[in-house]
Structures are given as C-alpha cells and as structure tokens.
Amino acid sequence: MIELVKENFDEEVLNHQGVVFVDFWSPKCGPCMELMPEIEAFAAKNEGKAKFCKLDTAGNKRLAISQKVMGLPTMVFYKNGEKVQVYDADSINIDTMQAKLEELIG
C-alpha cells in the first residue's frame, strides 16, 4: 500500500484517473491496528484493480481534516479524484467494501 503524506496526496489520489482506496489510520488507534491486517489482505487480493493507499493521520492531521475525516478508523473510495464512498468505524466491512470496489471498477 502506498503511504500518503501531504506532498504526494494530490498526485496519488486527487489527480489520479481511476479508483483509489485510502485507509485513514494512526498508531494510537487500537481499532485501526486491529483492522490493518485485514485491510492489507484486501489490498493484496485486489492488486492491479485499483490503487490502495494508507494515510497515517498522526503526522497529517490537516490533510485528513481537509478530506473531512475527523475520526478513526475511516476508509474512503475515490474515483477520478472525487470522494465516492466513506466508511466509518461502524460501517467498515471487507465484504461491503469488496462489492463497492467491483461496482466502481465495473
């Protein structure tokens, strides 16, 4: 998964033509750490279908807030630079995200 920071966020996500998945996380967030292996497996399984990234909000708080993310964990799908689907702590589910991914790459 590509590590996002403010220097590469525009290029990797906003200016990218295609589907991008971003995992907003932080090492202090227990639930994020629990999810990490599942998310990494999800990214590996779908490699090539979309771009998979993660953003450590600990050093990139303003960047996260600019994306309207103010809570962890949060997972976001972007398509052609537009935010198309947001999952919060309650709605994150690998199966639903897999279905959404298939739909987006259609």
């Binding site: 932080s26 202090k28 967030c29 227990g30 639930p31 994020c32 909000t57 600990a58 708080k61 996260a64 807030i65 309207k68 993310v69 103010m70 809570g71 962890l72 964990p73 949060t74 947001v86 919060d88 702590a89 309650d90």
Partner: peptide, 21 residues
C-alpha cells in the same frame, strides 16, 4: 450522531483526540 460518526462524532478519545487540537 450516526451520520457524523468519524466526522467529529467519536467514542474513543485516544483514537481521535489529535484531530481536535
């Protein structure tokens, strides 16, 4: 509450406190 979860609504201070500096 449900709509704004992860967008300012939180149940975990250690997870999210950083955002509210």
């Amino acid at each position: 509450e449900g709509k704004l979860r992860g967008k300012g609504v939180s149940y975990c201070a250690t997870c999210d406190a950083d955002f509210f500096e």
